[in-house]
Computed example of a mutant assay.
Amino acid sequence: MSEKTKNRLGWTAVILTTIIAGIWALWGSVENFHEGWYFESFIRNIGLMFLQYLSLTMIFIILSSISLRLPRVGGSLFIGFGLYLCFFFFNRITFTTVVMITIPFTILGLFYWFGRPRPRRLAYAVIIGVPLLIILVSSIPNAIRVSERVNDGNFDARIVTGNGVTLVWAPEGPGWPEKGVTWYDAKEICSHLSEDGTTVTDSVLNIWRLPTVDEAVRSMARHGKNAGGVWNKTAKKAEYKITPDKETPLWNVHSMVIYWWTATEADSEKAYIVTYNGGVWPRLKTRCPGYLAFRAVKKLNKISILSETESK
């Protein structure tokens, strides 16, 4: 094989892996500040960022760097990693896993095995520099946004007066859990909550309930100011004057929960969920990932036990 062909194969591999690593870098950076970055510790947040959200980017950078130095070793690692993902990580051999994972990794492995990109220093700069630059550029604005979140540390029951709606939101505990539950479990817990929202009783009291989509959207806020949200029933879309964020008094900035169930059903199998930034989507009522929970609400009355009144 001529040196020219080896150079072309090598640079094809470098460009392809840079594109893939760059895509994962962009996705990971955005997702990290969307559903991650909730620990109080900066070190734990950084660890979560690279281990969970940027792990694939780092894997591509490391494998590519090895391949540039040791082409046959790196090429073999690419092929082996593709087989590992297909047979062990996803634990299934399907048309999708073979076409989307095994074959692309095998092709990259072969390109690195036979390819020799020149100059090699430039190849290193591209495969390492481009993804890291994407991470930096996409992370800075999100990091600034997260650092400016309002957190008064008060996770008791709160009165929130929103855009034409006033509700009491449950205190941290069974009516505002920090782990995922199904829609059915959320409704069941709400119906059994005690008056102060701190205990699940044996009796059906029906004091608390899930908020409707319209109530949740109208209650959203950012920096202590109501977001001016309204729920468009026809378009099935939430509209805001300002984009809300994960802040008190509604949200706990240090909780992994970023979605809440609402009482509004999309159909017999799905109900709407709302996220801290105002998005609304239908989800299967049986879903219960760790980041999907709920916060119970009730109408304001004279015997409500509250720590603070929020009126915006």
Rank of each mutant, 00 (worst) to 15 (best):
P104M: 13
L132W: 00
N154K: 15
I127R: 02
R120I: 15
V126H: 04
L108S: 07
E148A: 15
E148C: 13
I93L: 07
G109R: 09
P117T: 11
P117W: 10
S76V: 06
V73Y: 13
I134H: 04
V98G: 06
G82W: 04
L68M: 09
L85S: 01
R121Q: 13
V99G: 02
V98P: 09
I134W: 03
S67H: 08
Y84T: 03
N151E: 15
S67P: 12
I93Y: 00
L83M: 04
F88S: 07
P71T: 07
R145E: 03
R120V: 15
G82Q: 04
F87R: 02
I144L: 00
S147L: 00
A125V: 08
I107T: 11
S65V: 09
F114G: 06
R121I: 14
R149C: 11
I144Y: 00
F114E: 11
Y124W: 13
C86W: 02
V98W: 05
R145G: 02
T94Y: 01
I128S: 04
M100V: 04
Y84Q: 00
R69E: 11
F111N: 13
P131R: 01
L77K: 10
L110G: 05
R92Y: 00
I103R: 05
L70F: 14
L132E: 00
F88T: 05
